[in-house]
Design a protein around this nucleic acid. Structure first.
Lengths: 366, 366
DNA sequence: CTGTTAGCGCATTCAT
DNA sequence: ATGAATGCGCTAACAG
């Protein structure tokens, strides 16, 4: 039974003055005599008084702090889940006067991203959350913002050499290692495999490949990595072109490798790779390990075409990134981690059913 | 750039009725004509109205609703994480006037549990969250409470034939299947295995065994299940006795089965089984699949002694169970799921490092 | 069935 | 320098 929390009224009563003056003292607004100030401070301390955050929030929901989110108009099922997370955050924090400014760029267009960051410099935006389209090219733009006092955080992929505060997302090198070990298990340590994926300009993709290769080489001598296949860098590709590239690439992989036992797909395009494998190699058993979930990926996992997917709940990732950003801006964090790694979920045939509609899978967000 | 959030007043104005009625509709309090109800719901949806949580919190500080949590003083690392979740919930919902009444019983003492449920009948407690120590013996006590208007929910294990509202936790049959498939992978489909675990009085254990056996029999003809070893039912065992039983049992298993390739441990006692295997069978490679995490389990996974653990974030489980209960009591839910299954995380050597200190692993709770 | 109103704890404006 | 009054959005109690 904890005693009820003291309110501003309690303090005022005990000090025998009005709540207005208490408020002035609590927020150092001045215009209070030295004597009463000390008295109030003493009594407030005695009563263990701290202003109610919810009441404060209720009053001050008009002053708004703006946070920008920048992400590409690319892999639709992936980014639509991010959108959900943005909505979640907006819903939870709109009462605290947070306003989000969302920028969607054409695919991974670096120039656009840099331009937006520069625009933000001349605005009243207090924080930025983004996925760097390139791990170093946007560093200067980030650093300038940071110098100006804007909190910049990365999510999904990082720009580790910039002066950003915090990265939220997978530890992609480890995710690659995990993928390799899954592949090793599925293949019982024997076979020929390929890596198929998008361009490696975004750091997370590069890191997954690094992790995967190193683990395969180190622990699976019986597995031969045939080649790494990447699509071209498509700065202003629209969705369809992007998918077409992937389809073409997969066909090429199958054409040129009659014997192939496993494919590691480095991002959410897994579904397009898997669909083609399913069609063209009906009878053979090519193990597929990929990333992320979507309604199609889930179905393919359930069917057994995709053997495992490493899933990071994007909804949670943005939400956490935004939350961290907000807290940094409002200085609610005394110290914060540079890396906020999210747990890499392994989703298999057995567990996929617990994520029925990926687009409405709120998971653990409150 | 979203326009300012709609308030209850906006909705009332647009619908041309009073805010009182809007409130009634929003919370399904009844006493509103079908026609106006529909109208208000439509307009609320149009305006994208959701009640301000902070305003709600501000109001409901005075009336406190009591929710009881009942759980056993058993597996300490498991239940201490549950405690964290209880604390989380208390912290998040104390502004809403929620008060938790925590009952800890000696181990899985059914009589005690029933007595507590009966006590609650004569109190002002509005909701109960508990793990049924037996899947049917406490049904009458639950049903009586429900009849009296108390919301009763289960977590971690269920009492499916009672009139409880909602179960939050793993789908344990599926978790058993998942464990079987992991075991199958690790053993490459070949070998002799045993199931080792606590008594099967709590339904979740029984279900895991069911799922495991059925999957092994169905999909792994090369794997032979030697036997299922269970500890005795220890109603009022204190921790040490409980562990001793498990240690003894594991030694017995190893003594009587010189050839053994895998062990499935049905609950969080995995660490005690694994420690003995590590000592006694230094050189042999017995694959171990278990449940839950703890600092010791994590270390054993990292070492490679335990190959995989199926983890349900207990902190999240209680939190969600309590949240559901609260919402039901306050009628914030029009309809709710009977089963609130949590995602079964597969934790392996590769991913265990992302849960550094299990006792402080808040994961995604806000 | 529906409308009206007090007040939750606080910040702010207006008086004094 | 200080007190009083208003209202943020909502719920609950009361009034019709």
């Amino acid at each position: 039974m904890q005693k009820k929390k003291a309110t501003i009224k309690d303090v005022a009563q005990a000090a025998n003055i009005s709540i207005g003056t208490v408020d002035r003292v609590m927020h150092n607004r001045g215009g209070v005599s030295k004597k009463t100030e000390e008295k109030i401070k003493r009594i407030a301390a005695e009563l263990n008084y701290t202003p109610s955050t919810i009441a404060q929030a209720l009053v001050s929901q008009k002053n708004n702090i703006k946070i920008a989110v920048i992400y590409p108009d690319a892999e639709p099922h992936f980014w639509s889940q991010v959108e959900k997370g943005i909505k979640d955050f907006e819903k939870a924090y709109c009462f605290f006067g947070v306003e989000l400014v969302v920028y969607k760029t054409s695919c991974y267009a670096i120039d656009e991203q840099i331009k937006i960051l520069e625009e933000i410099k001349n605005s009243d935006i207090k924080g930025v959350v983004t996925i760097p389209y390139n791990s170093y090219k946007i560093d200067p733009a980030i650093n300038e913002l940071v110098k100006k006092g804007v909190v910049v955080n990365t999510f999904v992929s990082d720009a580790p050499n910039s002066r950003r505060s915090c990265y939220t997302g997978l530890d992609d090198i480890s995710a690659g290692v995990l993928a390799a070990n899954l592949m090793g298990l599925f293949l019982k340590g024997q076979g020929k495999i390929a890596i198929v994926g998008v361009h490696r300009d975004v750091l997370c993709i590069e890191n997954r490949i690094l992790g995967f290769i190193s683990a395969i080489h180190k622990d699976y001598p019986g597995i031969e990595l045939l080649r790494i296949f990447n699509t071209r860098m498509l700065s202003d590709a629209h969705e369809n072109l992007y998918i077409e590239e992937m389809v073409e690439l997969t066909n090429h992989v199958l054409d040129t490798n009659p014997i192939l036992n496993g494919i590691y797909v480095t991002n959410s395009m897994t579904e397009h790779v898997a669909k083609i494998v399913k069609e063209r190699r009906k009878d053979s058993d090519i193990k597929i390990v990929g990333h992320e979930l979507s309604n199609d990926i889930n179905a393919l996992i359930a069917e057994g075409v995709i053997d495992a997917s490493i899933y990071q709940n994007q909804r949670k990732v943005v939400y956490n990134a935004l939350k961290t950003t907000y807290k940094q801006i409002t200085r609610q964090l005394e110290e914060f981690e540079q890396y906020n790694y999210i747990f890499p979920n392994i989703v298999t045939k057995d567990s996929v059913k617990f994520i029925k509609d990926i687009y409405n899978h709120k998971d653990e967000i409150d």
